[in-house]
Amino acid sequence: MKIKGKAWKFGDNINTDEIIAARYLNTFDEKELGSYCMEDIDKDFSQKISKGDIIVAGKNFGCGSSREHAPIAIKGCGISCVIAESFARIFYRNAINIGLPILISKDAHKKIKEKNLIEIDVSKGIINNITQKKTYSTEKFADFMQDIVNSGGLLKWIRKKGLAKR
């Protein structure tokens, strides 16, 4: 799978309250949540991005609460992938489980500038900065998780493996 879009940069410890504030947790409608994504950091965020754009963040992205509304809001506003130096544990699981592409790369956060045009080969884990003509490597998923990613999320993985009780 290939993804192409502009980069939007964020710092360290972007928490789930910032990604989607608790006042909006009385719904889980993807489009509605998407319209409030990152509102308390940048109230125009959901309007100014284009479909397919990419979030590039620092350490511990998605820390805080377990709300799956956070990756849902990111997907809902049209973001196609999150690249970060590291992810908080629950956000990381949630993103993989719902099929939001995420990549870990220290280089990418250091070197990508806001609005750089980025192309990502998700299956190969290669980030190509078209604006700067540079490529960055990413950390490989463990085989176990890659299997969930390849299945298209946790529910499909469970179905594939026939794990659900009938």
Binding site: S66, E68, P71, R93, N94, N97, I98, L163, K165
Partner: peptide, 16 residues
């Protein structure tokens, strides 16, 4: 440990 809603749903269905 904390998990998200999809993990929870999967555990409800599979027990694991």
């Amino acid at each position: 440990t904390g998990v998200g809603s999809t993990d929870l749903a999967a555990a409800w269905a599979t027990g694991s």
